[in-house]
Amino acid sequence: MKSAGTIVAVALLIAAGIAIAPLAATEIPPAERRSGYSFMAPDTKAIQDDDTANPGMLWVLDGEALWNSKAGATGNACADCHNDARASMKGVAARYPAYDKALARPVNLEQRINLCRTRQQQATPFAFESRDLLALTAFVAEQSRGAAIAPEATAELAPFVAKGRDFFMRRQGQLNLGCTNCHDDNWDKHLAGSAVTQALPTGYPIYRLEWQSLGSLQRRLRNCITGMRAQNYDYGAPELVELELYLMTRARGMPIETPAVRP
């Protein structure tokens, strides 16, 4: 009897395992996608909705000043080549990370700005998470506010999207969690007091109240990876850019909110 009971229990576990396994890899259907904005309290939404209350706009203003200020050996400002960002940068952030032919891999918006600085302006690149880089990124991305997220669906990018998706689905770290375990399977629940949300990066760089500062998507990703107690990656690491790219394909068609406010 005892052994028969064990067999039944094992059989049940196997059956349960089979039932759970496909769920773990289920991405959120497009109709059920929700921006992190929709999970926020009315007070926090109000901060984002009012451009004179949204602290992210302070960085956007800084970014506008940087856009027009000369830099590097060429003495050119961003505006000297790209003219008015309101026209030239409209919709640009919606398709980043994008493929860079010279590097033969995708680069995110921060890296694109730094590539422009080193290649075109012959200036020193900004440090990741520096106020200047965040400001210029926020200013450029703000020009795409309301534009639908549209990462390029090219054959060149496909393998990188796949790698990013693999990262998202793979269990890792001391807690043996994959991103998907929270953000696909449990986005409607809470982790401690906070909404889990759906991992749709619609408003980066974001002003995060917890940070009391603007921060990049990579900063947010590194937070999560630390939380999983997994091996982290340096800012600008290809793995993080691939993950960013996959996340943007998840959010395809959703409007850009930069600079978003998050709790």
Binding site: D50, D51, T52, A53, P55, M57, L58, L61, A135, Q212
Partner: peptide, 28 residues
């Protein structure tokens, strides 16, 4: 760098109660 964001209505009627919003850039 950029410092303040001020929101004051440009016009108001005499005796109207108006809201003034100020946001200052500072690390605190």
């Amino acid at each position: 760098m950029a410092s303040a964001l001020i929101n004051v209505p440009k016009k108001a009627k005499r005796g109207e109660i108006i809201e003034i919003k100020t946001l200052m850039s500072h690390i605190m």
